[in-house]
């Protein structure tokens, strides 16, 4: 099916967010949190990117993956004590994205 405009906008915002947050993976602040923290953070970003591609192509697995990544990301932020203002804004945006995705979920394809 044709991709709704709101999904396109959300995906573009998501791609831009990834471009800006990906370098954060090897930032000195992330490195300071521990040897494996940049790796875990990087995986979360890479999975977010893949999930946006899935949503862009109107695939259900994209939405499912996105919800999973958001949950993992919040757990990661809790464990690394990064639950600041930025993280809360992130949660609000993620919830908005998830609600929008779920509205169109039934119209999305089941295939890979």
């Amino acid at each position: 099916m044709k991709r709704p405009k709101i999904i396109s906008i959300i995906c573009i915002i998501g791609f831009l967010w990834i471009v800006f947050t990906f370098p954060g993976m090897f930032s000195p602040a992330t490195k300071k949190l521990g040897d494996w923290v940049p790796a875990v953070y990087g995986f979360i970003i890479a999975l977010s990117f893949i999930s946006y591609i899935g949503v862009w192509h109107m695939k259900r697995w994209g939405v499912e993956m996105y919800i999973g990544v958001v949950c993992v990301k919040q757990i990661f932020f809790l464990f690394t004590d990064q639950m600041g203002f930025g993280a809360i804004v992130g949660i609000i945006f993620s919830l908005w994205f998830i609600i929008t995705f779920l509205i169109y979920y039934r119209r999305m394809s089941l295939n890979l």
Binding site: M25, G42, A46
Partner: peptide
């Protein structure tokens, strides 16, 4: 060790991110 982990992780993730769109 942390820099080796970082180097390997970055290479892996760059491979995934840059290769996913063409592969998909």
């Amino acid at each position: 060790r942390s820099n080796v982990i970082l180097g390997i992780t970055i290479s892996f993730l760059i491979g995934v991110v840059s290769g996913f769109v063409p592969a998909y």
